[in-house]
């Protein structure tokens, strides 16, 4: 295995779950997210020289997975089964807090959801999140604030410490 392939294999093993969860949190559908994430990793492998130098390779994968047209024809055969069932699929992922979180995320506008995924789940800083989404840092802050406010009204943290809020 070449050095590049070894590096990619390490990245793939370490990042698959996080990227898949981020995509699933955005799309609300694990089946679709799995296909899109695999497609994104395939593209990352093909362009590993570029992706490996990216400041946030996991964010590159997530953005690639969410690319509006990238996996359309892969999805095509699944479309009948998936159509109109995104939220139901999200809710079926579990009966506990994760289901409530997914449902709450699905109720956010798409851009707020993307900001939450990149900023909170992938732990990107504001500027990197802004570059990933092609929007201004101030816009990221605005989306983030609104999203967190909306989520906090739907979810009650079990470890609430008011000093941080």
């Amino acid at each position: 295995m070449s050095r590049d392939n070894a590096e990619f294999a390490e990245f793939f093993a370490a990042s698959w779950d996080a990227c898949l969860r981020a995509v699933a949190a955005t799309t609300g559908n694990m089946t679709l997210a799995e296909d899109q994430t695999a497609e994104a990793f395939a593209r990352a492998w093909a362009s590993w020289h570029k992706v490996s130098r990216h400041p946030a390779p996991k964010a590159w994968v997530v953005r690639a997975a969410l690319n509006a047209g990238a996996s359309w024809w892969h999805r095509r055969s699944k479309e009948t089964a998936l159509s109109g069932h995104d939220i139901a699929a999200a809710e079926s992922q579990g009966t506990g807090l994760e289901a409530a979180v997914l449902t709450a995320l699905r109720r956010l506008p798409a851009r707020q959801r993307e900001v939450i995924v990149l900023r909170v789940l992938l732990d990107l800083d504001i500027d990197t999140t802004a570059r990933q989404l092609g929007i201004a840092s101030g816009t990221v802050r605005a989306h983030l604030s609104r999203a967190m406010t909306a989520l906090s009204s739907e979810l009650t943290p079990t470890t609430t410490t008011e000093t941080n809020r």
Binding site: R21, A25, L121, S152, P157
Partner: peptide
Amino acid sequence: PLSRELRDALSELAT
């Protein structure tokens, strides 16, 4: 706490 809750909840998501 909310962010930790989000991350913890999604880390429990079956993949």
